[in-house]
């Protein structure tokens, strides 16, 4: 009887130890990620702030913004998720071509959005863990206008710490691009190559 009790006790200790280690490991890795994610957004904000407050020519500024987002955004995953189920029937070369085209389209479209925030200043508020990464909440202060809330979703699942979605004042970038790319694909009768070519063509 005593032996059973002792074994049971040891077993309980073992289980709780495993549980404790696990929990602390998880929290440690999350805490680490959160600070890493904030660091990334700090870096991006710093670079974007510098670029949009400079008085260089418009095309130069947009080119520089594109460079920042190329460096720090995981456009691969953004491309694949916006393509939707069509990615399963596409060949590897088709997917490669689409990913490249999506990157061109994405940089072109959203670098301009950030150009519009001129005279603005991005500051970091808070962050919290979400599935696959961390949400970093920032505020963009604008002269004469109410401040904008910009949420950055960050993950390291690509192997590097990168952003995979931006939510500006409630507008979710990936959701709108899913709709847009979906419609474009439908308008081209599901032809992925045609879709890729059009994405490169958009001004």
């Amino acid at each position: 009887m005593k032996l059973i009790k002792k074994t049971l006790k040891n077993f309980c200790i073992l289980i709780s130890a495993i549980f404790f280690i696990n929990v602390s490991l998880i929290t440690v890795s999350q805490a680490l990620e959160q600070s890493k994610a904030e660091e990334l957004i700090k870096k991006i904000s710093f670079e974007v702030n510098n670029i949009i407050s400079s008085s260089r020519d418009e095309p130069v500024i947009i080119g520089e913004l594109e460079f920042v987002f190329k460096k720090y955004a995981d456009t691969n995953i953004m491309a694949l998720t916006t393509l939707g189920p069509a990615r399963r029937i596409a060949s590897a070369t088709q997917l490669e071509f689409f990913k490249e085209s999506f990157q061109i389209y994405f940089l072109n479209k959203y670098a301009r959005r950030f150009r519009e925030l001129k005279d603005g200043e991005i500051s970091i508020l808070t962050s919290r863990p979400i599935r696959s990464g961390v949400e970093v909440k920032t505020r963009v202060h604008l002269i004469d206008w109410a401040p904008l809330e910009v949420l950055w979703l960050v993950s390291d699942r690509s192997g590097e710490v990168k952003i995979f979605n931006i939510i500006i004042d409630g507008i979710n970038l990936l959701s709108s691009e899913r709709v847009e790319i979906g419609v474009m694909l439908e308008n081209r009768n599901g032809d992925i190559d045609l879709l890729s070519a059009s994405l490169r063509d958009i001004d």
């Binding site: 995953i77 953004m78 694949l80 998720t81 990615r87 919290r128 979400i130 599935r131 696959s132 949400e135 909440k137 979703l153 993950s155 699942r157 995979f164 979605n165 939510i167 979710n172 990936l174 959701s175």
Partner: peptide, 12 residues
């Protein structure tokens, strides 16, 4: 503030 988003990594 606490909402869940679509997780593209899980999706893909």
């Amino acid at each position: 503030d606490n909402k869940e988003y679509i997780d593209p990594y899980n999706d893909v």
